[in-house]
Design a protein around this nucleic acid. Structure first.
Length: 227
DNA sequence: GCGACAG
DNA sequence: ATCTTGTCGC
């Protein structure tokens, strides 16, 4: 059943992993490369119908989280979903939406992992490198590694470990909310990623505000396209 | 060998 | 991701 078992995809997968490795060598994750002060934060998310990808990008002020601008893009979904190669499916629509924004955010939240990836280069890193902006990966559950259980308090966190490597952090952004997986994408370190994630999350919500809004917008784009 | 596997 | 109602809990 998994699409990855199709032997015709093996060459495609091989080429994608090679391209991923080339991009990874351009990836840097240092706290110093984040804007200071941080004035805007962005978010991107993608929804799908049978054949198309609907990407929505938003920019909010920081730390007030007031709406600044947003944009969308629709593209044919070509690359299949393969765990570990999500970027080859989602980066094209995401980049198109980001490039139609009136202003680029100082930091971008991406729906998917960054460093917490089998080859340490998930969608968030991929997008961050190609746009050359600081990027943070936010995922609902780990792809690899094992995460501890953060205490049931807002801001509690526990490392996500792959053997001895701390690849990300399970973060309880609000009390009674299931933790989200935070990892460094591009031009940010893990500690900074966690702090900004908490600062961009409205009390009581699970995901940072830019991602919530982008999620709603992309789903609205999909709905409106069928009418 | 079998299963698991971001969106 | 998407298909889907009601329902349990703060």
């Amino acid at each position: 059943m998994p699409v990855t078992s199709d032997p015709r995809l093996l060459p495609v997968i091989r080429r994608a992993i090679a391209a991923q490795e080339r991009l990874r060598q351009r990836c840097i994750r240092e706290k110093a490369l984040i804007a200071d002060p941080l004035r805007t934060v962005g978010g991107v998310d993608v929804s799908y119908d049978e054949k198309r990808a609907f990407a929505a990008a938003v920019v909010l002020g920081f730390p007030d989280l007031e709406p600044c601008c947003h944009a969308g893009a629709v593209k044919k979904a070509v690359f299949p979903y393969i765990p570990g190669l999500l970027a080859f499916r989602e980066a094209p629509p995401v980049l198109a939406a980001m490039r139609s924004l009136a202003v680029m955010p100082d930091l971008l939240f991406v729906n998917g992992h960054g460093y917490a990836h089998p080859r340490r280069f998930g969608l968030a890193s991929h997008v961050g490198v190609l746009l050359d902006i600081p990027a943070v990966g936010i995922a609902r559950r780990p792809l690899i590694g094992t995460a501890g259980n953060p205490a049931n308090e807002s801001g509690a966190h526990a490392p996500i470990l792959d053997h001895d490597d701390v690849i990300g952090m399970a973060v309880r952004s609000s009390i009674h909310c299931r933790p989200v997986c935070v990892s460094a994408g591009h031009r940010v370190d893990l500690a900074t990623a966690v702090m900004v994630t908490l600062a961009a999350t409205v009390p009581g919500r699970r995901l940072p505000e830019p991602l919530r809004i982008a999620d709603a917008l992309s789903k609205k784009m999909r709905r409106d396209s069928t009418k």
